[in-house]
Amino acid sequence: MGYVLTQEGFSDAISQLRKTYRIFAPVRKKGAGRFTDVDAILYDEVNGSEEIELHEKSDYSAKEVLTPLSETLFYFTEGICKEADLDTRPVLLFLRSCDLHAMKRQDQIYLANGMEKDFFYQRRRELVHYVLIGCSHSFENCFCVDMKSNVSEDGYAFSVDEAEGMYRINVLDERLDAVFSTAATSKEEVVPAHVTQNEVHVRIPETIPAEIMKHPLWDEYTTRCIGCGRCNFVCPTCTCFTMQDVYYSDNGRVGERRRVGSSCMVDGYTNVAGGGQYRKTQGERMRFKVLHKILDFRKRFGYDMCVGCGRCDDVCGEYISYSNIINKVADAVDAMEKEGR
């Protein structure tokens, strides 16, 4: 069902929803950006509709609500493992279409790669309902159209589009109709806005021969990329983590096991005891990351991992463009095919 609300009506609806749900959304943090005079858009719990940033792309993705950068899994006390408590109130999570598509990739790894489901992911996932933020225009570096993540027809509880002070809502979760019909000024069909054109285009080859792994195109990143890992941390589809044990005091037997976000671009990712390491240069690490996004994940699960949000390009301090790399791969594949390989 579709509804049109004034700003006041929307604010009332959010207040009403907060009685049942915790609401997480992109929030503007003053001066927290890459430079001190730049704001950052980060995910946080909100207390009211005015805190929700509906107009800009968030710097970090919505995945942090499901997989926090650092998460305590359990506590150790005298040989017993006690699972960390979790706030069991349901959650409404505001995100854009690309990020909603990205959540399918998170589910794929955490719930459907291997026989075992990830307990800590699943218990959060079951609490989360998505709220789709419509996109009235493309942002810098986005290429969602080419990655087919620009439209979301289902998988959300309701959508929201704001224009000139009016909020247009499409409710898919019928339990929420009551809240919006009370707050609305009118009912009409609402289709969430979506982007149909991006400035950035990528071309992903249908088949990518294995020779691409040895192609010289990766070499320039050995010198250009500094291995900071920011491109992984902002990516809504990256899932890797490292286990980390901590203890509170040397003599106490009390401590905890955490998992923390991990990056395949950062030195140490593959280190094994005795000094062994499997990808030593940044060029090899770039090859590993990029081919996962556009080839290896697809080989395993049947669809591409990357959703084209462009955040990796937004964040890179070395001005490395991942969408450019995809196109370089496509050119290299073309050249290989021409040579008849």
Partner: peptide, 11 residues
């Protein structure tokens, strides 16, 4: 290198 053994950590 392995951190999970369960197909989740990626390492």
């Amino acid at each position: 290198k392995m951190c999970c053994g369960l197909g989740k950590c990626g390492h």
